[in-house]
Amino acid sequence: MAEQVALSRTQVCGILREELFQGDAFHQSDTHIFIIMGASGDLAKKKIYPTIWWLFRDGLLPENTFIVGYARSRLTVADIRKQSEPFFKATPEEKLKLEDFFARNSYVAGQYDDAASYQRLNSHMNALHLGSQANRLFYLALPPTVYEAVTKNIHESCMSQIGWNRIIVEKPFGRDLQSSDRLSNHISSLFREDQIYRIDHYLGKEMVQNLMVLRFANRIFGPIWNRDNIACVILTFKEPFGTEGRGGYFDEFGIIRDVMQNHLLQMLCLVAMEKPASTNSDDVRDEKVKVLKCISEVQANNVVLGQYVGNPDGEGEATKGYLDDPTVPRGSTTATFAAVVLYVENERWDGVPFILRCGKALNERKAEVRLQFHDVAGDIFHQQCKRNELVIRVQPNEAVYTKMMTKKPGMFFNPEESELDLTYGNRYKNVKLPDAYERLILDVFCGSQMHFVRSDELREAWRIFTPLLHQIELEKPKPIPYIYGSRGPTEADELMKRVGFQYEGTYKWVNP
């Protein structure tokens, strides 16, 4: 592979701008107003304001973009700056750019259920340069409990009458099928589907988006991507930290609602779906819905739930269990780990287990898709061969690698495990991989909904998990304890083995 010439960040961002501006969906010269509902909250200060700053800094926003914060707290732009700027990672050389960014910011205080507050917000936006005809993007960085009041008031008082209007809704989209349907029906009564952007930030990850290209742009994968060759698929999300004093919020939802029903299920769809007619948003989402419709409700015998306990040999936070978090209700049975087996009941995947695993306070930070292939028929190497695996590593250190057998150097035919490896950090030294939120917010500006969740996708996802969630809430089974920093409950490994996964433990990928 030829040595790549190092590029400056300015040059890299210039390439990104060229890609972005050559499309006809990006209205570079139009006025846009980006409204952050819930501007005083954690999500706004840690993710949304920093993301908008990065896009502005790199010249990736339309030229005439204004940012308006809205929340109940009586704040000023200076207050917003004070709480969000520490997350910007701005350099001293960017000081003038930073001043320009905050000059485009404003803030309006108001209630979430008060019509007069929204009329005041609308008047404020109209007073901005060309504000009355601007395109408006409303980001709901809010708890779902206020979605209905907020969307109703936005629709009645704050819509642009000339430009387009788009609304970005953060997960969780309800707690179960019934609450999700209620919320979807409410929002759909106010906005068209092409105006609604239900954001799952995992769909903005580079390697998640790469799944489609790997599958449908490489001839070698087509013939082997089926039940005849693939023994099982494992989708993993692991965090090495616990709730760390923020367990009160987590306890309301648990690990299945927080990660599995959305992030992991979306990745499953991209692995299992048929080739779409095109890369058009609805063509892709149509195929994802077909996959979900082929999955039956989760069966309790295919589920393992766990909850982390303190590690007596650990240090600091590792010595504390979930129930030691003062914000967690006493005696909570909320799971911090889950392993679930699903089956896609169609011709391509009949009988292939899709194993979804996620948890907190585990032994490493990792998100990946792992396809394990069947054993080689007619073994001539005296059971020395391990199964081939194709691994798409989402985070950290984005990579695609194939675990395969090669001859060990020497005189004899002794096979050993090795890999074919594409590590993004080595291959793409001159490429700026956008943060997931950067990519998705740019998608909203461009009107691309491919990486957002459609209402029928959402409904099918909740259909699969709601009976299990209701059973857990009714019966309150005690989750299996696992030690902070471990791989999780051993019962999860036993479940995976029972459905056909072979864990060798003899080879570990190392970032080159």
Rank of each mutant, 00 (worst) to 15 (best):
T145N: 12
I196P: 03
D194F: 07
C232R: 00
N218H: 03
P92V: 09
E239L: 03
D113V: 08
T91K: 11
F66G: 04
G110S: 06
H124I: 12
G163N: 10
Q195P: 01
P86F: 07
A116T: 15
Y112D: 00
T31W: 12
A134M: 13
L137M: 12
Q119T: 14
A217I: 01
P62Q: 05
L137Q: 06
Y118W: 13
D251S: 07
I167D: 00
R81S: 06
Y139V: 05
I224S: 09
A134P: 09
S180W: 01
R198S: 00
F66D: 05
T51R: 05
R175K: 11
S84T: 12
Q195G: 08
W225Y: 06
Q133M: 13
H155G: 11
H201N: 03
Y147E: 03
N135T: 07
A109E: 13
T236R: 01
E148N: 08
R246M: 02
L177A: 12
A103R: 15
P92R: 11
K89Q: 12
I154N: 04
N229T: 06
I187K: 01
I255A: 06
K171P: 03
S160A: 13
C158F: 07
P143H: 00
L140A: 09
E18D: 11
E170F: 01
Y197T: 01
D24M: 09
L190S: 08
C158H: 01
R192P: 13
N64L: 06
S189F: 09
F87C: 07
N105K: 00
D100M: 11
A115T: 12
S73T: 14
I187S: 05
S84G: 10
T236C: 07
G163I: 00
Q119L: 11
E85K: 07
L235P: 02
M159R: 12
Q28H: 09
P172K: 05
V77Y: 08
G59H: 07
K238C: 04
L16I: 15
F34P: 04
G254N: 08
A71F: 00
M212A: 04
E19P: 15
R246L: 02
E18A: 08
R72V: 02
D113K: 10
T243E: 03
G23A: 12
R57K: 13
R198E: 04
S73E: 05
N135E: 07
W164C: 08
F102S: 01
A6K: 15
K82D: 10
L75I: 13
D30F: 09
A116E: 13
I220A: 11
I36C: 04
G163W: 04
L98T: 05
I196F: 05
R192S: 10
T65L: 11
N135F: 08
Q22E: 14
I162P: 13
K171W: 04
D24L: 05
K171Q: 03
A115W: 14
I230W: 00
A90R: 07
K238H: 02
V146S: 05
F88T: 05
P50N: 06
E19V: 09
P92K: 09
A231H: 07
D79I: 06
D251M: 00
W53G: 01
P223V: 05
Q28C: 13
M37T: 13
G248C: 05
S40Q: 04
A217S: 14
H129W: 11
Y107Q: 03
N210R: 04
F102R: 06
R166G: 05
L142I: 07
Q11D: 15
A71C: 05
I35K: 03
F88G: 00
S117P: 14
V233H: 01
T31E: 11
R81F: 14
R104H: 14
D194M: 08
K45G: 05
I33H: 08
R192T: 13
T151K: 01
G23T: 15
V77P: 10
A231D: 07
A217G: 15
G247K: 05
G174M: 01
E193H: 03
K46H: 05
L60T: 02
S184K: 04
A141I: 03
R120G: 14
Q111P: 14
F101D: 04
A44K: 02
E206V: 07
L121R: 01
R175W: 04
Q178K: 14
A109C: 12
T91F: 08
H129D: 14
R136G: 06
G163M: 11
L142T: 06
L142R: 03
D24P: 02
L183D: 02
L203K: 00
V146P: 05
S179V: 02
S117I: 08
E170C: 03
V150F: 00
E170Q: 04
V233S: 02
L55F: 05
A71P: 03
C158M: 10
G204M: 02
A78Q: 13
I52V: 14
Q161M: 14
E244D: 15
R198N: 00
I199S: 03
R136T: 11
R215M: 00
F26Y: 15
E193L: 03
N210E: 05
G23C: 10
G174P: 04
I80M: 12
I196H: 01
P172Q: 02
F138L: 05
I196N: 00
T10R: 15
R246H: 02
F253Q: 01
A115I: 15
Q161H: 13
I36Q: 04
G69Q: 04
K171A: 00
L75A: 11
V233N: 02
R120Y: 15
L20P: 14
I154F: 08
I33R: 01
I67D: 03
N153F: 12
M212Y: 04
G69M: 05
A90N: 10
L214W: 11
Y70V: 14
A103S: 15
S188E: 11
K89H: 11
A39P: 06
H129M: 15
F241G: 06
E239A: 02
L61S: 00
G245K: 09
L214A: 08
L121C: 07
I15T: 14
A149E: 15
P172M: 01
D181Y: 06
E19C: 15
P86E: 10
R136D: 00
W225T: 03
F34V: 10
A109H: 15
Q161A: 15
R136V: 09
E94Q: 13
P144T: 00
A90D: 06
T151Y: 03
K205I: 04
L96A: 13
G245E: 07
K82A: 12
A109D: 13
G23I: 15
A25F: 12
G41Y: 02
T151I: 10
D228I: 07
C232I: 02
I67C: 08
K45A: 07
F250R: 04
R166F: 01
K205W: 00
S132R: 15
N226P: 02
T10Y: 15
A231E: 10
G110C: 09
G248A: 05
Q83R: 12
F56T: 05
A25T: 15
A25P: 15
M207D: 00
D30C: 14
L214E: 01
G222D: 15
M207L: 11
L211H: 03
N185T: 10
R136P: 01
A39H: 01
P62F: 04
Y112R: 01
I199A: 02
L98N: 01
A149L: 13
Y249T: 02
A116K: 14
E206M: 08
E244Y: 11
V213K: 05
G38L: 03
S188H: 12
T10I: 15
L61W: 06
F87I: 07
A116W: 12
P86M: 09
N126L: 14
G245W: 07
R219W: 09
R198V: 05
D200P: 01
F237M: 11
N122K: 13
L7Y: 15
I67P: 02
T51S: 10
H32N: 13
P143D: 03
V169A: 08
F253K: 01
Q161I: 13
Q111V: 15
K97E: 08
G242H: 02
I80C: 06
D113R: 10
L130M: 15
F56Y: 12
H201S: 01
D42P: 03
L55S: 09
H32P: 09
